[in-house]
Design a binder for these strands. Structure first.
Lengths: 352, 352
DNA sequence: CAAAACAACATTATCGTTATCTTATAATTC
DNA sequence: GAATTATAAGATAACGATAATGTTGTTTTG
């Protein structure tokens, strides 16, 4: 094992050709199983290639083929379980199709996103899957200009005119809100982040619709508890829980006693549980809690948290398939917009 | 915005040259700020390049330069917070150095690992950071043979003779075990996975040393609770908690009542908490619990879990720096092996 | 058995850059 | 103002693979 020679120059087709006594072209045909080579020579060549540890130079290959068998993924942060699931599934699908994945992180910053896009373009990708951070779409036009297939996930940019796949936030919030209302809640508070994202706007809207459909009025001052935006996205997710704790504690200490909380992130529920526990408010007897995201720890909360199962893997699967179709020129021209409806996971926190 | 032309062929240096009325060569020099071009023509060329949306073809470029400004990362699963932190930090460091990151997942399977290595080689990477899944190192020899710099993290393969960075599992387990012993525990159980990994072996050894240093005897039958290996690594981390729950419940129902648990993963603590709660065994009064990993939810467990803060970001930072040094030919010849000592986070679950 | 068909390989061109070597022109020096 | 030296640009050749033709022989066929 020790005699492995380090740093030696990789053998090329030419080298192989010289050793076997044939032309580079023939070697290429033999290794790529194209016709024009006798079975015996082909076997000989393959054996020799194996022996010398020949690996085709991807740069030369993709220069002539115009493709690289690589797709890029731009998300803000893989510490976020939603995005890590998404990226994992993209990687798996890409792998099945013989593609590799270039990972670019934008950390929820417009500047870093711009940089990520720039690096993506310079990397010569075959396609790109991205969860944009900004509402403005101008950053993405270079991608389209360069003719690189682009599929968006999670956050939509309608004016860009590209395919979009997402979980259905509107349906989701109505599912969770309806669930607590159906179980007798009359005074529900939505605990969510105060950010100017379309996803969050949609959530507030859906929440309101759900209340109104049940004959309840929606008053932002009473039915909304907003968490100030996170300072940095490099820090652990658990700060979300801290922030939620603070907002919930404040609300409860002002004497407000809703009979149900619906939250926009399971981590918020984590902080909320603490605030409630400290004040001896029992879940679900005094107040129901409904989560969002079905994070791994929710089943083990006390009581186990009812939550929403977001089909991020399915989103990733469809987005990747669509992207690969585009790359292989098999995609139709229409712009696909799919929102996949999540599923409820009802557990003890909403069961009276 | 709508008139953005889709799928048009990217302009090349030749195209630019024709437009400006110069040679491709001159354009190249102008854009790369190499001497031999007058200031005015350079400005003209850059303006024109910007206007046409010229992006250099990375394939052609790296074919000539022999590098791609890309490093690969092979880990088993980014759903695991340790690995997602690691990958995030590698991406950040790489980005600072002008490199992009190719992500390859091995899903804790030897076969997929082999495939990932193969794809890494075919991708023409400048370097590779990997957390190997197997103890056997033969899968990695092609990487070394190809002269591609390799840095290992998390799991060591000494016979491979490459740099290695990791958290110090041995010091870690002694820190956690010592912590409960120092707080009066006399009968400690280590709850860990039953896998033939060097990391886990090291943990068991360290646990034993810690007990013996405190004048206690170590008996595998009494001091060890082993969780059967996970079936699949695509499933959520929370199954770890389920498995731990089952093992802990079984142990407790056999009448065993240790006064402290030390676990090899915070998720195990999650399952353990439930098993204890169901049996009205109080934490920390009846039994102390010490976690491993400082996952985001541990601060919000009831009671908050004492745990071990693993410096995965620091590991990633050092590993990436070292890899970049290798790539840029600035690394010395010696084989670096660094184990970074974790820190304790003492919370209520071990405070009597 | 000659003409056509085919298999097995060689030749040459090409992808889009960068590197090296020239050459023409302008600026400097004595 | 002639000789020297900078400066700006062109010409040509890589890089390592694949694609499109060419060139041999050998086999088939009427």
């Amino acid at each position: 094992m020790a005699e492995v020679s380090r740093g030696r120059r990789q053998p090329t087709l030419q080298d192989l050709a010289k050793v076997v006594g044939l032309t580079a072209n023939t070697i290429s045909r033999a290794l790529n199983d194209r016709p024009g080579v006798s079975a015996t020579t082909r076997a000989l060549i393959k054996a020799e290639a194996e022996r010398l540890g020949y690996v085709p130079n991807i740069h030369a290959r993709s220069l002539v083929l115009g493709a690289r068998k690589t797709i890029g993924v731009i998300v803000s942060n893989i510490s976020n379980p939603f995005f890590s699931d998404l990226v994992s599934e993209v990687e798996l699908q890409a792998q099945h199709a013989g593609y590799t994945v270039l990972l670019l992180l934008s950390y929820e910053s417009a500047e870093r996103e711009r940089d990520a896009i720039d690096r993506a373009l310079r990397s010569g990708l075959d396609g790109l899957i991205a969860a944009p951070v900004q509402e403005r779409s101008t950053a993405w036009t270079p991608v389209i200009k360069a003719g690189i297939p682009l599929v968006l996930v999670s956050r939509e940019l309608p004016e860009l005119g590209v395919d979009f796949y997402s979980t259905d936030n509107d349906a989701g919030i109505q599912l969770t809100t309806d669930a607590v209302l159906a179980r007798g809640a009359k005074d529900v508070v939505l605990l969510d982040e105060d950010m100017p994202f379309s996803t969050i706007r949609l959530r507030t809207e859906g929440f309101r619709h759900s209340l109104e459909r049940h004959g309840l009025t929606f008053d932002p001052r009473y039915n909304l508890a907003l968490i100030p935006p996170a300072r940095s996205f490099r820090v652990s997710q658990s700060w979300h829980a801290d922030d939620a704790y603070r907002v919930a504690a404040d609300l409860l200490d002002r004497g407000r006693r809703p009979d149900a909380f619906v939250v926009g992130d399971d981590y918020y529920a984590l902080g909320l549980y603490r605030a409630l526990r400290e004040r001896n408010i029992r879940i679900p007897d005094d107040v129901m809690v409904m989560g969002w995201g079905n994070l791994p720890f929710t089943r083990f909360m006390e009581p186990p948290l009812s939550t929403l199962l977001l089909p991020f893997e399915e989103v990733a699967r469809r987005a990747t398939r669509r992207l690969l179709d585009h790359i292989q020129g098999m995609a139709d021209d229409r712009i696909v917009t799919e929102r996949i409806v999540p599923e409820l996971a009802i557990r003890a926190s909403t069961t009276r």
